[in-house]
Amino acid sequence: MRANDKVGIVIVSHSPDVARGTADMVRQMVGEDVPLGYCGGNPDGGLGTDVAKILKAIDEAWSEKGVAILVDLGGAETNSEMAVEMLDPERQGKVVICNAPIVEGAVMAATEAWGGASLEDVRRTAEELSPQ
Protein backbone atom coordinates (compact mmCIF):
# COMPACT_ATOMS: atom_id res chain seq x y z
CA MET A 1 0.00 0.00 0.00
CA ARG A 2 1.58 3.25 -1.07
CA ALA A 3 1.56 6.29 1.12
CA ASN A 4 -1.40 8.50 0.33
CA ASP A 5 0.52 11.74 0.44
CA LYS A 6 0.11 12.58 -3.23
CA VAL A 7 -2.98 13.37 -5.26
CA GLY A 8 -3.89 10.49 -7.57
CA ILE A 9 -4.27 10.85 -11.34
CA VAL A 10 -6.86 9.04 -13.46
CA ILE A 11 -6.76 8.99 -17.27
CA VAL A 12 -10.02 8.27 -19.10
CA SER A 13 -9.86 7.97 -22.88
CA HIS A 14 -12.19 6.52 -25.50
CA SER A 15 -9.27 4.40 -26.62
CA PRO A 16 -7.58 1.81 -24.38
CA ASP A 17 -4.36 2.47 -26.30
CA VAL A 18 -4.46 6.21 -25.69
CA ALA A 19 -5.16 5.65 -22.00
CA ARG A 20 -2.29 3.19 -21.63
CA GLY A 21 0.07 5.34 -23.69
CA THR A 22 -0.72 8.41 -21.65
CA ALA A 23 -0.17 6.45 -18.45
CA ASP A 24 3.18 5.26 -19.83
CA MET A 25 4.22 8.86 -20.43
CA VAL A 26 3.28 9.81 -16.89
CA ARG A 27 5.18 6.84 -15.50
CA GLN A 28 8.30 7.52 -17.56
CA MET A 29 8.37 11.28 -17.08
CA VAL A 30 7.14 11.65 -13.54
CA GLY A 31 7.83 8.26 -12.02
CA GLU A 32 6.09 5.61 -9.99
CA ASP A 33 5.36 7.70 -6.91
CA VAL A 34 2.09 9.25 -8.05
CA PRO A 35 -0.98 7.01 -7.68
CA LEU A 36 -2.20 6.39 -11.22
CA GLY A 37 -5.24 4.74 -12.76
CA TYR A 38 -6.31 4.62 -16.38
CA CYS A 39 -8.98 3.12 -18.55
CA GLY A 40 -10.33 3.30 -22.06
CA GLY A 41 -12.90 1.56 -24.20
CA ASN A 42 -16.56 0.73 -23.88
CA PRO A 43 -17.84 -2.39 -22.09
CA ASP A 44 -17.30 -4.41 -25.33
CA GLY A 45 -13.73 -3.20 -25.73
CA GLY A 46 -14.53 -0.85 -28.63
CA LEU A 47 -14.00 2.89 -28.57
CA GLY A 48 -15.90 4.56 -25.76
CA THR A 49 -15.83 4.81 -22.02
CA ASP A 50 -17.20 2.62 -19.29
CA VAL A 51 -18.42 3.86 -15.93
CA ALA A 52 -17.46 0.59 -14.22
CA LYS A 53 -13.90 0.84 -15.54
CA ILE A 54 -13.70 4.50 -14.51
CA LEU A 55 -14.79 3.58 -10.97
CA LYS A 56 -12.09 0.90 -10.88
CA ALA A 57 -9.44 3.35 -12.13
CA ILE A 58 -10.45 5.86 -9.45
CA ASP A 59 -10.09 3.11 -6.89
CA GLU A 60 -6.62 2.21 -8.17
CA ALA A 61 -5.47 5.82 -8.02
CA TRP A 62 -7.22 6.55 -4.75
CA SER A 63 -5.50 8.92 -2.37
CA GLU A 64 -6.86 10.64 0.69
CA LYS A 65 -5.52 13.84 -0.85
CA GLY A 66 -7.91 13.38 -3.75
CA VAL A 67 -7.97 12.26 -7.35
CA ALA A 68 -7.76 14.36 -10.52
CA ILE A 69 -9.33 12.90 -13.66
CA LEU A 70 -8.16 13.76 -17.17
CA VAL A 71 -10.55 12.96 -20.02
CA ASP A 72 -10.43 13.18 -23.79
CA LEU A 73 -13.78 13.73 -25.52
CA GLY A 74 -17.39 14.43 -24.49
CA GLY A 75 -18.53 10.97 -23.46
CA ALA A 76 -15.44 10.46 -21.34
CA GLU A 77 -16.35 13.55 -19.35
CA THR A 78 -20.04 12.66 -19.00
CA ASN A 79 -19.24 9.11 -17.94
CA SER A 80 -16.58 10.34 -15.53
CA GLU A 81 -19.07 12.74 -13.93
CA MET A 82 -21.49 9.85 -13.62
CA ALA A 83 -18.80 7.70 -11.99
CA VAL A 84 -17.93 10.46 -9.51
CA GLU A 85 -21.57 10.72 -8.49
CA MET A 86 -21.66 6.99 -7.87
CA LEU A 87 -18.77 7.13 -5.39
CA ASP A 88 -19.36 7.10 -1.65
CA PRO A 89 -20.41 10.60 -0.60
CA GLU A 90 -17.23 11.13 1.43
CA ARG A 91 -15.13 10.30 -1.63
CA GLN A 92 -17.12 12.43 -4.08
CA GLY A 93 -15.77 15.71 -2.75
CA LYS A 94 -12.21 14.53 -3.29
CA VAL A 95 -12.45 13.88 -7.02
CA VAL A 96 -12.26 16.54 -9.72
CA ILE A 97 -12.41 16.36 -13.50
CA CYS A 98 -9.85 18.65 -15.10
CA ASN A 99 -10.69 20.76 -18.10
CA ALA A 100 -7.39 20.10 -19.85
CA PRO A 101 -5.92 18.22 -22.80
CA ILE A 102 -5.55 14.60 -21.74
CA VAL A 103 -1.87 13.87 -22.40
CA GLU A 104 -0.38 17.22 -21.45
CA GLY A 105 -2.82 17.59 -18.58
CA ALA A 106 -1.94 14.18 -17.17
CA VAL A 107 1.80 14.87 -17.24
CA MET A 108 1.42 18.36 -15.76
CA ALA A 109 -1.05 17.23 -13.12
CA ALA A 110 1.15 14.29 -12.15
CA THR A 111 4.21 16.52 -11.89
CA GLU A 112 2.31 18.86 -9.61
CA ALA A 113 0.92 15.94 -7.61
CA TRP A 114 4.40 14.49 -7.24
CA GLY A 115 5.47 17.57 -5.28
CA GLY A 116 2.66 17.03 -2.78
CA ALA A 117 0.35 19.76 -4.08
CA SER A 118 -3.29 19.95 -3.03
CA LEU A 119 -6.03 18.64 -5.32
CA GLU A 120 -7.01 22.20 -6.20
CA ASP A 121 -3.42 23.08 -7.16
CA VAL A 122 -3.11 19.92 -9.25
CA ARG A 123 -6.29 20.80 -11.09
CA ARG A 124 -5.21 24.41 -11.60
CA THR A 125 -1.89 23.29 -13.03
CA ALA A 126 -3.56 20.99 -15.55
CA GLU A 127 -6.07 23.66 -16.47
CA GLU A 128 -3.41 26.33 -17.02
CA LEU A 129 -3.09 24.69 -20.42
CA SER A 130 -6.66 25.38 -21.45
CA PRO A 131 -7.77 28.61 -23.03
CA GLN A 132 -9.93 30.34 -20.45
Binding site: Q28, M29, V30, G31, V107, T111, W114, G115, G116
Partner: peptide, 14 residues
Protein backbone atom coordinates in the same frame (compact mmCIF):
# COMPACT_ATOMS: atom_id res chain seq x y z
CA UNK B 1 11.43 20.23 -23.42
CA UNK B 2 8.93 17.91 -21.84
CA UNK B 3 11.05 15.36 -20.01
CA UNK B 4 13.81 17.74 -18.90
CA UNK B 5 11.15 20.23 -17.77
CA UNK B 6 9.47 17.64 -15.60
CA UNK B 7 12.82 16.68 -14.05
CA UNK B 8 13.77 20.28 -13.36
CA UNK B 9 10.36 21.05 -11.87
CA UNK B 10 10.39 17.94 -9.71
CA UNK B 11 13.84 18.79 -8.38
CA UNK B 12 12.82 22.39 -7.70
CA UNK B 13 9.81 21.19 -5.74
CA UNK B 14 12.08 19.34 -3.31
Amino acid sequence: HARPSVKLTKLAKT
